[in-house]
Nucleic acid binder design. Structure first.
Lengths: 147, 147
DNA sequence: TTTCTTATTAAGAATTATTCTTATTAAATA
DNA sequence: TATTTAATAAGAATAATTCTTAATAAGAAA
């Protein structure tokens, strides 16, 4: 994760550029799906993305949403936040932050640490393969679920 | 996660004790399912646990495996390692360690850090709820998938 | 021990999330 | 503008998980 804080427009420009670099077509669906994840701070799941994009592109298919979310993930434009439910959630915020994951309701909250905070990983981590990303979760019962 | 390194027998004794404390019955299925996760270091998924326990308890049902894995998780006896696939994997090792998660094949590797290593979380993490566990993942392409 | 209560289980149906198949469409290039 | 082919829509298929119901067995009580 980086520290840049861009506007949606900048993020979309960035996506278009990455598509061109990779020889991928810039399609309306790809842009709209990315825009939906990038403009939400609530880590939507595939179904939520589908419902929302459908309002602007009524013919969009579920398959396109899944396929596009996966390709955006491979491009490193979005991050798959694994919930404990059998249902993936997505995040387009690539700034350093960690997730509070409620083990009761499955909700995911962003925790933005103070400047200077850094996630340290063991030195031997790279012995297992090529590191692409780091994901730190704090799991517990969220305030809402505690009443 | 704690630092204790117990034998399987001790872990099972511990489970029985926890069951009694919580007023839960000590059933053969519960013990065998836990034993399977606790004696494996490969983070088995529900199906794998089912296949293995089935050898000793041929009548065990899939539902019992799922239900029991969830209750063991709630009891904090096992940990749900979320893989990126829509398939949960489980870990009964409660010592401090982190996971290397291959984004290509879904394999999960344990990384045991040197003494003194500690996962630091932001101070405001507890503002979101009651913290039960911390999960640090390193995601990338494992050596096997890089050829 | 035997009986009783009820948590737990087996079986299999149902549901939910995700992926696949095929024909069609449209982005990028010539 | 025509051509090529990556990307898409539709909906069927699959895979993981959960639910429903009747039967079983763990632990408490007699």
């Amino acid at each position: 994760m980086t520290k840049s804080n861009q506007s949606i427009e900048e993020k979309i420009e960035n996506l278009k550029q990455r598509c061109q670099e990779l020889g991928m077509r810039i399609t309306t669906q790809r842009i709209e799906i990315f825009k939906e994840v990038a403009s939400s701070c609530e880590h939507p799941d595939a179904e939520t993305v589908y419902e929302r994009v459908k309002k602007r592109l009524p013919n969009i298919s579920f398959d396109t949403v899944y396929r596009t979310l996966s390709s955006l993930e491979e491009m490193n434009m979005i991050f798959r936040v694994d919930s404990l439910l059998p249902k993936a959630r997505f995040d387009a915020d690539r700034r350093t932050h960690i997730h509070f994951l409620c083990i009761k309701c499955g909700e995911v909250y962003d925790i933005f640490p103070k400047d200077g905070y850094e996630i340290k990983i063991p030195d031997n981590s790279k012995d297992f393969g090529e590191i692409k990303d780091i994901n730190l979760q704090v799991r517990g019962i969220c305030n809402k679920c505690r009443h």
